[in-house]
Design a protein around this nucleic acid. Structure first.
Lengths: 215, 215, 215, 215
DNA sequence: AATGAATGAGGATTCATTCAT
DNA sequence: GATGAATGAATCCTCATTCAT
């Protein structure tokens, strides 16, 4: 039985253990490589070397450099959404859910610092559109990104309907919080000697105190 | 008579008005070109076309593509620092200074949306280090960036010493605010139909209410 | 036990019926594959897929892609020589032999259109030499090709010695006839709706009338 | 003033002497390079070396390797059509026109042996279709090829309407003659010591005697 | 014997930079 | 000073061949 290239690509997502492993290995390496250099600066040779496979091998699992890049980010974004869901659900009330989301995401970002590099280096581009060939970035990344932002938005809306949170546009607030958290990782990278916990605390304080109804 | 490349570059910083004008024109064009495409996606041909000069001409004023890019951003970052200083100084008290900074920066970003694209697309890289050839990004950008962040930090410290602001690490808070403001521009770019004023209001509310001492 | 590559190749020429069958299958597939695409455009993957075997299997029977290609053509050229011999021998006189050769070859070409594609696409190269890696094309193909052309040449010489044919260099005439016949197949491919029989008739008429002594 | 790439390509066809010269130089080199090796075997490096320019320079004048190849052949085919027209028009009667066409084309082919190699190596492919990316070969080459074949066809039809030529399908006869002439060049390449004049004579004799009405 | 995943040399194309005009 | 034609290093991707299973 024969498969076209496209079909093969799909098959790779199936559960064949060997192929899946190799695919994951390549994604791991790509994450590291793209974490160290810009999309345009990381060459396929770099990536192959990091992964420890031949250049051609990558093309057995991914259709192009772009596909590889999008896939690597996609995987991480899904994990982030999952982390966020778990954090949100374990919160006793809205404020607690927010607190847990903040810390869960911080932990995730720190544990995946290379992903953060990779992702946010490209993210400006995502937000700001234009880039033709990377245009389908939207299609590949948006679902997981929306899922994540929606979870935070929901937590805020819950707090608002309970009367605990100030009445600001929930989605805007959620995206603001998102930016605040990401920023901690940037700061951490800038000055590795400060404590990330402190920074997380600052975000938590400012955001929660800013949201809470003090009457 | 001949000049080494270094000598030429120094000469270009001289005050010959014609040369200065042409240099500024090129920076304007670079800003637009880099605003539309990634550093690696914008070619020197693109830039020359946008500026309306020959490709070789750019090399009379800038040593390399990288130098051009760094210079264009440098100029804007200085303007941002200037704007921020004016806003901060015109504030009647700490909270007012913060409010003015938020809105001044938002206005500046909106008026220079292409710069924001250009800058923040590369910024992740800046924060997160590594990239060899762009390593001197630090040297070129850091002064103006520090100046800007220090102005916000000072305003916060003023509020804290007056007892109006909560006692969190001022610099971390300043950088958090910075991230919140930048994020507005991203959101604006994502959904151009929402009102930027609203988003600015959300940032102002969350940050100020979060910082204010409610006892 | 291990064999060097050369030993393996020799073994493959042995008469083990199974191996021979598989070898023929692969040649059949190669013929189809090379008939559809240029030598350089048909990949070993293509061929393996057409044949319905694994890519590695081909290398059990042929030393390289080039060897496969040369072998496939070699086989067909031998068949063409055989067809031509039969046609020539069944002719009652020289003119009749020529007529039979023309039609036998046309029939063969039509029945093996993919071979014709394969062969004549490469043939310019053959005639015109140079191509290093394909240089031994000569050694592999020339025997059968000479055999074919010699049969036609003999028929013409017979006609000349009988006084029926005009006295032109027989070998040149034979090669000209060969080109005329091949050309029919090209024309047929160009315009599939015209009748090949007509074209064959044109060739027969022009060649025979041109050769016959009209005194 | 600025031009898009496509516009530049068109401009190159204009009469700017420098650009035209360089373009012609490249075509000359391409002709030699493609004459020595198959389209797929001649690399852009080869061609650049033969021409004596940098690899990138070729791309200033031609959009791709394919474009270069098609352009080189196009140029020659136009010259062949022109040669053929002149020969046909200078013929005193139909038979004479044919004779002149035969010898003019032979001379042209001999003088442009590398073109013949280039062209006919690819021509099988042309006639026999398929090759996707080279599909527009048709559009680029057909006009000049049709022009050439139509000239020969006309000469034959003239002879038929004058009653001098046998009544066979004129176009088929023309294409047959074409194949006969091309074949001389092949033979010449095979055995460089034979006289091409003799071969031309054989073609002329067989074709004309075959076409002439002997009643 | 048969397979097809892995490999890396090789090739088309792009683009920052130079330099003759 | 200004230009843009020329360059070739660098990059993505393909595919013949190998070899562990």
């Amino acid at each position: 039985m024969r498969f076209t290239k496209a079909e093969k690509m799909v098959r790779n997502k199936s559960s064949n253990p060997q192929k899946t492993d190799r695919r994951e290995e390549i994604l791991d390496g790509a994450e590291r490589a793209f974490g160290r250099k810009h999309y345009h600066e990381a060459t396929m040779d770099d990536i192959a070397e990091v992964v420890g496979v031949g250049k051609g091998t990558i093309y057995l699992y991914f259709a192009s450099k772009e596909d590889l890049f999008l896939s690597a980010a996609e995987r991480k974004l899904s994990q982030l959404a999952e982390i966020t869901r778990a954090a949100s659900e374990s919160g006793s009330d809205a404020a607690d859910a927010i607190r847990r989301i903040v810390h869960a995401q911080l932990d995730f970002f720190v544990a995946n610092i290379e992903f953060v590099r990779m992702l946010f280096v490209q993210l400006g581009n995502f937000h700001l559109g234009e880039s033709q060939s990377l245009s389908d970035i939207r299609q590949r990344w948006l679902p997981a990104m929306l899922q994540t932002i929606n979870l935070t938005t929901s937590a805020i809306e819950r707090g608002q309907s309970e009367g605990a949170f100030r009445n600001v546009p929930a989605r805007d607030a959620a995206m603001t919080l998102d930016a605040m958290i990401r920023n901690c990782v940037f700061m951490q990278a800038l000055d590795p000697f400060t404590d990330l916990a402190t920074k997380g605390q600052v975000v938590e304080t400012i955001f929660l105190e800013g949201m809470l109804n003090h009457e």
